[in-house]
Write a protein that binds this DNA or RNA. Structure first.
Lengths: 109, 109
DNA sequence: CAAGCTACTAAACAATGCAAAGTAGCTGAT
DNA sequence: ATCAGCTACTTTGCATTGTTTAGTAGCTTG
């Protein structure tokens, strides 16, 4: 199946939400996403998202040694990221409610 | 704001769901979508979706005169479309539940 | 030293929504 | 009869974003 299209945009918001819970790094974010039910988010999928969020100023980055492997890049959310996330949630909710109205009608998602 | 990405894939499923409710045509589908809460779905957005669904064999097309304007293309769902829609709903639900778990945590969407 | 895990990078690609412009039939007002 | 405005569909070119694949490199363990 092709979930790629359904993930568009959603992933960006979810990654930001994960970082909002506390400073974290790429590999760990993948684990968080999969723990919440997302299927096999590859590294080639996640890292470009982080790069974009960083360039947009929604997250900040700092390098630090890992006790396990190579250097990690730790990300934390910025004030701009926080307000973007708040807006994102509103937009996301609105769209999912519109879609649910058509897809599931009487059911409440 | 840019809802374009959040709509990716969702729109296709919603259009199919609208047609599943009964034979209809492009202009009317746009009305249905907006009635359910979607914002300004342009013609340049919808018609390519219909073309794709048709080519994929998920909907069937027939031309008929309109009492108001130019000829309409009426679309109806095919058996393949029905099973695709059922699968789509499962996938969509799974992804929105995963996203909600991260975005809204304890809240129940 | 090799295997395997951790961790990030980069390039080429495919899918889809969107804006803009165009074609055309029909109706009603001027 | 003409023009505006609504209905209805088409086409082109574009931007964004997730995926695939491959690659680099540190660390631990056998």
């Amino acid at each position: 199946m092709d979930n790629a299209q359904l993930l568009k945009g959603v992933l960006e918001g979810c990654v930001l939400a994960v970082i909002d819970k506390g400073e974290t790094y790429g590999y760990e974010i993948i684990g968080e996403l999969e723990k919440s039910g997302f299927d096999e988010i590859g590294e080639g999928t996640l890292y470009p998202v982080l790069t974009r969020l960083d360039k947009s100023g929604l997250i900040a980055c700092r390098r630090a040694k890992s006790p396990l492997g190579p250097v990690r890049k730790y990300y934390s959310i910025t004030p701009q990221g926080r307000s973007f996330l708040a807006e994102f949630k509103k937009r996301y909710r609105r769209i999912t409610e519109s879609a649910a109205a058509i897809l599931f009608e009487e059911e409440i998602l």
